[in-house]
């Protein structure tokens, strides 16, 4: 018996194989199968899937996809969902709290993607510490917009500047919003923020050719593409003065690209997809017994699920 085997309590001589060995064998078998199926080239498989999607020949059942990296699987499932009529899609997000390490990459990815100014955040990560020393633990809870099926923020808007679109995403009409912030008070998740018009570069000193608002702010003056439109940050134009919120990166979804917070999650803790697709990863995950949603007692029916 090796030193390693001595230290492994799960070893059972009667069965002749340890748990570790069994799992190892299983992993190897899975990997071999995956490699066979993917021809050792995930990109090629992905391209093949895209081709099948374009041609409409992709089988409804996609057991093969399970061998892919979850990002690749979710992207293929996203492309598949986009083939369906708009009203048949039900976008949901699943966040595995056990995998989230609190790196805030999703927060920053979202800020970069949507060119969010200071004071505007769509996906903060709440850090929670609980227990009493020495039995303490930390938990990280990313908090995007819950895209509620019964959103309290929508009916309170006096000008119908916010609404649920056909895919279930709660959108904003920046040009119509009057900035009363009633929706901010109505959201039980504080998922809406107001854009007060700050810029990162407004306070920096001007050094000709090197620094200064004229030189440095090209990036933050560049338009974002929320809701499929261009919003350059100029003066007090919208979205300055408006309520703003996470929109599941709808502008990316429609182009077949996953939301920025999903692709930047280094722990693969955030999942996205069409819950109406029974073969999708998110449909599998939200059927888990350890799934929960925030403040469910309010009846908002959030489309963001947490795995605990």
């Amino acid at each position: 018996m090796t030193e390693q085997e001595k230290l492994t309590p799960q070893s059972t001589a009667s069965e002749g194989v340890s748990r570790r060995e069994f799992l190892g064998a299983l992993a190897v078998a899975g990997a071999v199968a995956a490699f066979e199926q993917l021809a050792a080239n995930p990109q090629a498989v992905l391209a093949a899937y895209e081709e099948q999607i374009v041609q409409g020949t992709l089988a409804q059942s996609s057991a093969d996809l399970k061998a892919l990296d979850v990002l690749e699987r979710m992207r293929i499932e996203l492309l598949r969902a986009l083939q369906k009529p708009v009203g048949e899609r039900r976008w949901v997000m699943v966040i595995d709290l056990r995998k989230c390490i609190g790196c805030h990459a999703c927060t920053i990815g979202c800020v970069a993607e949507n060119k969010l100014p200071p004071g505007v955040v769509y996906r903060p990560v709440i850090e929670e510490e609980f227990g009493t020393y020495p039995n303490v633990a930390r938990r990280f809870i990313p908090r995007p917009c819950m895209q509620c099926e019964n959103p309290p923020c929508v009916p309170v808007c006096p000008v119908r500047a916010t609404y649920t679109n056909a895919e279930g995403i709660v959108e904003m009409d920046y040009e119509r919003c009057i900035g009363c912030r009633y929706c901010l008070t109505a959201c039980p998740y504080s998922a809406r923020v107001s854009d007060f018009g700050f810029t990162y570069t407004e306070e920096i000193p001007v050094i000709q050719g090197l620094l200064g608002t004229q030189t440095a702010d090209d990036y933050e003056r560049a338009p974002n593409f929320e809701y499929g439109k261009e919003y350059a940050r100029q003066g007090r134009n919208s979205p300055v003065g408006n309520a703003r919120k996470c929109h599941f990166c709808q502008h990316r979804i429609l182009e077949g690209v996953l939301p920025a917070c999903v692709t930047t999650c280094i722990g693969r803790a955030t999942f996205f997809g069409d819950a109406n697709d029974p073969d999708s990863l998110v449909a599998e995950l939200i059927a888990s017994p350890n799934v929960l949603r925030l403040r469910e007692e309010l009846g908002t029916e959030p489309r963001v699920y947490y795995l605990k």
Partner: peptide, 20 residues
């Protein structure tokens, strides 16, 4: 209001489900 110049939206795009 964040955009008080748009106050007239409340008359034109009114949603009477809102208390405001």
């Amino acid at each position: 209001l964040g955009h008080f110049e748009r106050f007239w939206h409340v008359y034109v795009y009114a949603d009477f489900g809102s208390m405001i």
